[in-house]
Design a protein around this nucleic acid. Structure first.
Lengths: 244, 244
DNA sequence: CGGCCGGTTGAGTACAATCAATTCTGGTGG
DNA sequence: CCACCAGAATTGATTGTACTCAACCGGCCG
């Protein structure tokens, strides 16, 4: 232990606390697990790496493990008939994924950037869970977090105007960056346009046009394809918050 | 105890098991809590009743309790500017609701029918959770269930054609009835058309037209406003499953 | 009997999908 | 280092579908 100054503490689960109002900072996601818990999890986990674009697991495959992201971005999606896919979520460091229903994964996942993650076998996880009440509570908190995310996603999808959807996506990512303590002077979008389209329930051209509209109206501007700045906060929030 | 032949066991949480393949019956939601756990929860809960249409709690109010439905249907929603609202979920017996973020509710809820429910104070719940690892696991299972539901809802909302959305709604409710062991010869929709519109992200006229289209094509028929039958299973699944 | 609420139907408009052509970008090999 | 290529992204023209607004039905209650 002490022979290694840089210690890998084990899985990290980060979420906004559902109970405490502002802990430690309003809206900030914080590390839920104690060092003790992380060590326990580390004992049953392995570290895996995925190259950009690599599949992590496929829909309906037998679920053998959950994953906890250390670095990189993962896209969770449901393949549709042809070249289309419905994107369920973008997952970031501190997130947990690999949900199953009756032993099978309920979506497919792919590394959107290079990814390193803890791989936590389900068997071991279950065993650990039934022995450790504190760990359970942390997982519950995280699941509540993901549930709220999914509900926000649904809310976004219920919007009709493409510009609103796009604005809400930017808003989500800005919040996310802030919640992770990163500077949010510009919004970084690690995924490509077609992934955005899949997440927003729009066609790829529609995404492009929506971005164009927003830049034309001087509401946002693009430093490059993946870095956006919000220029007109007022107009932006009007679109992203309560769209008509 | 024994003096009362009809005993109220306490909260019931029903969900599809994420791990066991088919337990007890493929796709069936089963009771997660042991009698022991239900008794523990019962001790810290009270039973509350709500009239049809009554608000249960409001968005952003301080969250003091979670609820577990005994009977009736609850609508969770997010109020929008005017007469509109985005409906997050319809909740049925065995469901758990009253999620909070930093101490406040993240949506509003209203009784859609007369409702009876357990009211579980959060403080007591937290205390109980941190002492009981088995109970935690059950709650985790339930949250996974709700998370999948939310993701299905998002998937539904990503569909573009109104008939697909409506078909998926019927499909969801048929599955739900089946999962609860009810006969599913016809699909019962306990909510009114405008609630359906709010859930599907459509205007009220669009819902009406979609139903009309489906009946005109002899894919479904209505026994009455709230009871639908699926006539052409093939065509129905084609719309509800992999649209396009 | 009349009004009200939930629901349906109709006409016109707006917005995004589609299909297709074009430009931009990043990566590769000469 | 540059030329080139392939995939990503943008733009354009047309079509379709759902929205809006508004009128109309039908049951329920006073």
């Amino acid at each position: 232990m002490s022979s290694h100054p840089i210690k890998i503490a084990g899985p990290a689960i980060r979420a906004v606390d559902p109970w405490l109002p502002g802990n430690p900072v309003r809206g900030e996601r914080h590390q839920l697990l104690s060092d003790e818990e992380r060590a326990q999890l580390a004992k049953i986990s392995s570290i895996v790496r995925f190259k950009k674009g690599e599949m992590i697991y496929e829909l309906n495959a037998p679920a053998e493990a959950s994953f906890n992201i250390i670095s990189g971005v993962v896209t969770a999606f449901r393949p549709l008939s042809r070249k289309r896919e419905h994107i369920t979520a973008f997952l970031y460091p501190g997130d947990l994924f690999g949900l199953s229903e009756q032993g099978c994964y309920v979506n497919s996942t792919r590394a959107t950037t290079a990814v390193t993650a803890y791989r936590i076998p389900l068997q071991a996880m279950r065993r650990l869970l039934s022995r450790n009440a504190d760990l359970d509570v942390d997982i519950i908190i995280k699941l509540c977090d993901e549930l709220r995310q999914a509900q926000r996603h649904a809310f976004l999808l219920a919007q009709k105007r493409a510009v609103s959807k796009v604005a809400m996506l930017l808003d989500l990512h800005e919040h996310l960056q802030r919640a992770n303590g990163l500077p949010a002077s510009d919004v970084y979008l690690p995924m490509d346009r077609s992934a955005i389209a899949g997440y927003l329930g729009l066609s790829l051209p529609a995404v492009s046009r929506a971005f164009r509209t927003l830049t034309a109206r001087k509401i946002i501007s693009f430093r490059d394809r993946r870095h956006a700045q919000i220029l007109d906060r007022k107009a932006f929030e009007h679109l992203a918050d309560a769209p008509e």
